[in-house]
Design a protein around this nucleic acid. Sequence first.
DNA 1: TTGTAGGCGTTATCAA
DNA 2: TTGATAACGCCTACAA
Lengths: 352, 352
Amino acid sequence: MLMDITRNRITLQSVATHTGLGRSTVSLVLNGRGNELGIAKKTQDRVFKVARKLGYRPNSLASGLAGKKTQTIGLLLPSSPFYPQNLIPQELSLLLHRQGYHTYLVDSLQDQDVILESLTEMASRRVDGVVFSPYHNHFLTPAIREVLNQFSVSVLLAHEPIVRGSLRGHIVCESVVPGIHEVVDHFVKTGRRRPMLATNMTTSNQCKIKAFQAALSRHGLKAGEEVSVFGISRYLEGDPDYYTHFLNQFESKHLDEREFDALLCTSDEGAVAAINYLQEHNRRVPEDVAVVGLNDTPLAKGIRPPLASVQRNYRNTCELVVKRLIEKLNQPDLEPGYDDLRTKFIRRESAG
Amino acid sequence: MLMDITRNRITLQSVATHTGLGRSTVSLVLNGRGNELGIAKKTQDRVFKVARKLGYRPNSLASGLAGKKTQTIGLLLPSSPFYPQNLIPQELSLLLHRQGYHTYLVDSLQDQDVILESLTEMASRRVDGVVFSPYHNHFLTPAIREVLNQFSVSVLLAHEPIVRGSLRGHIVCESVVPGIHEVVDHFVKTGRRRPMLATNMTTSNQCKIKAFQAALSRHGLKAGEEVSVFGISRYLEGDPDYYTHFLNQFESKHLDEREFDALLCTSDEGAVAAINYLQEHNRRVPEDVAVVGLNDTPLAKGIRPPLASVQRNYRNTCELVVKRLIEKLNQPDLEPGYDDLRTKFIRRESAG
DNA sequence: TTGTAGGCGTTATCAA
DNA sequence: TTGATAACGCCTACAA
């Protein structure tokens, strides 16, 4: 009969009995403190051998309860269908696994209560640290900040510039702002005078709008919302896919009646929709209108004309997050810092 | 001074003391078993009030250790960069969260040892169940099957048809095979006589090759590997992106010298590369060659001509996985079953 | 160098 | 209807 692995009966006591030693001796040896305490090599070998033979697996619940670290990190991440490949959870889990940590994953949803509850839940599971990525800064409410501050090790992964304020814990910011500035710079350098931003009018995009307008102003171009922003209505659960949503909005809000010679879309799907829409309305891309997307989908270079975009590098970002986390885990009194990761403009044909 | 949330000193004992009750009474009430056992309403109210006021948070480590259930599910999933949006981990985590379960996430990598180790680790964390998704069936080695069998609740999420064999535990299979058959049916129905499959020659694609060849044979078409398969070399870590990889391979292995009038690619990226390659070599899509991809990337319909593909519905799949898991969790002696989820052909212009 | 005993915070089992 | 008391499995002093 197969044994239920979740009720493995082999405990520290079993090993102690089989070796004829005490529980504590076995515990010490198994935790690698044998040499430190000068326990006979022979004894140690015996312990290891018996443990292996018996298939002993420490119960992490028990060791966590008894005060040891739990070797667990809580991940509270949003599932964003607008990221081209959302591999952040797996990447973090993978990197942390390599460092000997295991991960709790919770989808933060876009709901303050879920976030609060999940953080508390993680605390009650005694995670050694947390990574929290708010869908956008709006979710960094005082309540959430407070709960976050109660973890001794935390890394905040933000996607827009952030003001530390009362926040303890390290901040890693992968901001699109520099990317947007690069895009506008490129527009201007290649002679465009009326760049426009096509974006959903959501809170999470406010910072993009601001960055875009700031970039325009810097170049002495008109930046008023009426002239520089084409608003797409909010994407809702029941809507068709993102590409179609943008396309429909371009149709119904008559993009072709607006005056512009360059268009930055807040997603690659939207940018592709724009290219198709414009071509159908006899506007050449990039000759008449330069088009740029955001996020740099793997397929961007397969679009005709190849789609220029703003690239974010989730791998680098994750690596840095994990690095900061581990540092803090190993040196509890490390001062929290702030890392700025730049996104960068990838020039391709659609941008001229 | 802020308190370290991980060292919350408010325990069950605190609540007991403050209410003047015993720990067990408090425990029962807090676990909602007060009415069942007929504990006075007044007492219950008092317990709840005090617990709230004190900010009592149960320690899940302790309750896991003492009780039977940990309300935790282990997720062992591969991170596949070839899925258009890999939202499976988040979706599972989300659905399970709604059912009151929390999730351990581990990237299974494509490594037998990691899988074995991770499963054992999950066991030692006393998860109530596991979801395991092998990157492909090759990873269902006897050793892994055995470890998997030791969980009393497990769901296997496979992407190719699977032979149960010794496997206990529920199986959910989201197979591309039916989709591939539909594609070939469509090719034949629209008059194509020489369909070809462009695929990486990896173990995980063997079943696709077989399905494709079987479909051809069924229609009395030549199915030999020389005529029906265009092999793409394995995608390696250092390679450029998938789109470019396919494009390079088409170039270097002279796709244009092969004779075919329909092409199924094992990824949408590859299919887009094919479309661009063919057009550059003066072959019209779909008139001269019908092209179909796999997975139905969100951008497929934005390609020109719109890319036909085979759609997998990760949401349905995840829902079913969670449903089966919960069923088994609630009825431990439920017989394990097998669910077959079909992928389906989405016809668009590129397929004629 | 090894063993003993107490505690971590819950849940479960009885008894009252 | 409530309260002791014994697990659960491990860790860490402290004693020997």
